[in-house]
Design a protein around this nucleic acid. Structure first.
Lengths: 163, 163
DNA sequence: GCGCTATAGTTGACTACACAAGCAATAGTA
DNA sequence: TACTATTGCTTGTGTAGTCAACTATAGCGC
């Protein structure tokens, strides 16, 4: 009776892509995150937060900008940074020109941690994707995924410097 | 000394694809899940659980098989189905030949709910992806994502075609 | 100066998972 | 029969995130 609805994968390329995106993300996240947590005690978001900070001017960012880059809510960033602060990887700094703002600043320990974790993580990612795709296909995949919102904005507008 | 590490996206197509997969998934999930929750009170996993059940023989599956298809742990499935049972969308059924097994069975209400939600969800997915990709690109994207583990074996209880 | 609105950030309550431990039933071995 | 290992599932606990409500500051119009 409703068999069109019930076997939609054949009928709809968008749904097909969507479901595979969900599954592929779940599988990849599980494996790569487990690796990162086991070897360095960092989650994927921890790692990416450190990465963004390391690439920002003076190793610091406003928390709201970090939220935008990580696709987290402001409260999510507060909790994420709580953990990183307790681990001594980032610290807070006040903004002289706007007292509402609290910067998250990468510490030396945080920078060292990122450097240490990067090697393993990069190797893991390269292994995970390189095993399944050629370089050309990776470019293709990245190009397609980059058209989704949020997937591209990390590169261009990072150093806003608007205080 | 660490500048290679700190701007890795240019140097590594695998990492580029990985980061965009993360971001693209986060953005798409947020939007499409919010839609589904707002309109029908179902999360993405709720929806997919109902979908898998509807496509299974007699609308029922062992919980462990459902876990495999949804990429959830057994405990995750227990909690997911708890919610769906309370909502009356699925019920439990014993297995005559193996008393360890509890089937999850789609109820009539569950089937109706799925049918109602499918229209909106399919439309949302089509709009979200169709706005950004041509049909051909969607096929390409699905084909690439399908090579990730877990993304392909969604059809039957037998999933052994990986790697 | 005063009030008003917008923005940055935190907190409490909640949800959705994972992991580890445990129970019940089955299968294998004797 | 009994004894052990494996499988299916549930539960306790912990974690990462959301949303709504809140405080504090900034910046505008008057």
């Amino acid at each position: 009776m409703s068999s069109q609805v019930l076997t939609p994968q054949q009928q709809n390329p968008a749904l097909d892509a969507w479901i595979r995106l969900l599954r592929g993300h779940a599988a990849a996240t599980r494996e790569l995150s487990a690796q990162l947590v086991a070897e360095h005690g960092l989650t994927i978001n921890d790692y990416e937060a450190l990465l963004h900070l390391s690439r920002a001017d003076e190793g610091r960012m406003r928390r709201v900008d970090l939220a935008g880059n990580l696709l987290l809510t402001p409260s999510g960033v507060t909790r994420l940074l709580d953990g990183l602060e307790q681990a001594g990887l980032v610290e807070r700094a006040a903004c002289a020109s706007d007292r509402r703002v609290t910067y998250a600043v990468l510490t030396d320990a945080g920078r060292a941690k990122l450097r240490a974790a990067s090697d393993a993580h990069l190797a893991g990612v390269r292994e995970y994707f390189g095993r399944r795709f050629s370089d050309e296909e990776l470019d293709q995949l990245a190009g397609l995924l980059g058209r989704l919102p949020g997937a591209a904005g990390a590169d261009a507008g990072d150093c806003s410097a608007e205080t």
